[in-house]
Design a protein around this nucleic acid. Sequence first.
RNA 1: GCGGGCAUAGCUCAGUGGUAGAGCAUCAGCUUCCCAAGCUGAGGGCCGUGGGUUCGACCCCCAUUGCCCGCUCCA
Length: 508
Amino acid sequence: MNQDDFFKKLTGHAKEYGFVFPSSEIYDGLSAVYDYGQNGVELKNNIRNYWWKAMVQHHENIVGIDAAIFMHPTTWKASGHVDAFNDPLVDNKDSKKRYRADVLVEEHVSKLEDKIAKEVEKARKRFGESFNEQQFVTTNARVLEISQQIEDAKRRLYGSMESGDMAAIKQLIEDLGIVCPISGTRNWTDVRQFNLMFSTQMGSTAEGASEIYLRPETAQGIFVNYLNVQKTGRMKIPFGIAQTGKAFRNEIVARQFIFRMREFEQMEMQFFVRPGEELEWFEYWKQQRLRWHLSLGIPASKYRFHDHEKLAHYANAAADIEFEFPFGFKELEGIHSRTDFDLGAHQKYSGKKIQYFDPELNQSYVPYVVETSIGLDRMFLAMLSNAYTEEKLEDGSERVVLKLPPVLAPVKAAILPLVAKDGLPEKAREIMEALKYDFYCQYEEKDSIGKRYRRHDAIGTPLCITVDHQTLEDNTVTLRDRDTMLQERIDIAALGSLIGQKLKPLRV
RNA sequence: GCGGGCAUAGCUCAGUGGUAGAGCAUCAGCUUCCCAAGCUGAGGGCCGUGGGUUCGACCCCCAUUGCCCGCUCCA
């Protein structure tokens, strides 16, 4: 099956079985927004819980918070999002390629700088030993002319960026004679600005209202609460603060199902460390986070690290954990060494001293931060796509089964009377009552037993408990395994511990 | 956002310028009872939305929305 067909089947399955619905579908949907259905919300909650337990409850030095989505506007000045998330974009009408307008200008500038370097090299050869580079670049007419062009271009670019004058940037591109590397033409569209942050108004009247943003990342909620948590929790460095929650980005292109949505959920942990030790911790968390993934029993070949060459404005090291989605290896989780950029910026903008007194070193410093940040929706998609399996059975029939890690499966056990009479439903209800406080179980008596098995295969229920006539005689039931379809007869009293056993994560 | 494709029942799809079909699914009854069984019956669609051409449009034309495929960024 090719990637396209597989992905279509996967999204179809997700909808048909109540995992993911297009948002507001009866109104034709809302682009790149999706809703989680009755089974989807269980899977999503289970992933979030599994992460929360591993990060917060299994680490004595990590605590959680739940910060608001609305934050003071200055937060986003300090974080750099107001500036860095404003990309001026321009299309070449002939090649249909899209470029960042500022990058086009900067690349042009670096070409000019190369030209100067070449002039200098030529001159060095010509003058030999007596060559004075400083004197050459300040006097040579050609070099001076190019330098002047560079100066002009930079001044105009940064001036226009600062004032948000998109027309001026387009004029600059035209004046510099920049051509598209693909088509070689100067046939550009207008430069348009895309702010990746959603904004809304806080305050009841339009006049008195102030513009605030919906957070584009949850991390800042942790940074602005650093002092609160450190003091009230008496946290000692190194320590971490974790948070899960919604974030919003007005993506230019948002597609690929729930992989890239405008509203999405992050699971982040910011780990505060001594300056100078951040790269060791960066390595530690890279390995630790991969272990978390592998503990779910997904093959290691599905994961790989991708180290960033180009770093964001706040990072001094960055790596992704990539997962092999149906459409190839894509970023699932990011691990970033964010230095003291964020806390330093908030210290500056807020005027509050954000420092930690380290008794061992007997000195104060702004802590460095190592971030682990995973997309919950992406993890959901990773688990769903890895689990989706179409099997041909020996009798020639087919079944579709979601081989989800049992700990993540929406329903842990289905409780099924073999037939809906002879007192079997009553017995099955008794078992349901006994188990439902520990595990999410579903009772079903409609349709043939085979059909019910297949229905639960399709939503990934790891175990089916079937009550038959023998149950009434000796209190045993059959326990069917989702993956092997094998059944064993066991005592009702043993059900709880057997299900519990099935849900234990791997030790990795 | 730009270019290309698609849009008919819950799902997968047929279909013709003259009032809409199949299989599966759903519901009811009967039958069967350990891996999507059978029989009978029922419900369900202003053919994505809005315009236009036409005596008449699901079909032709235009626009719009959504989805899929490419282009750039990110969790």
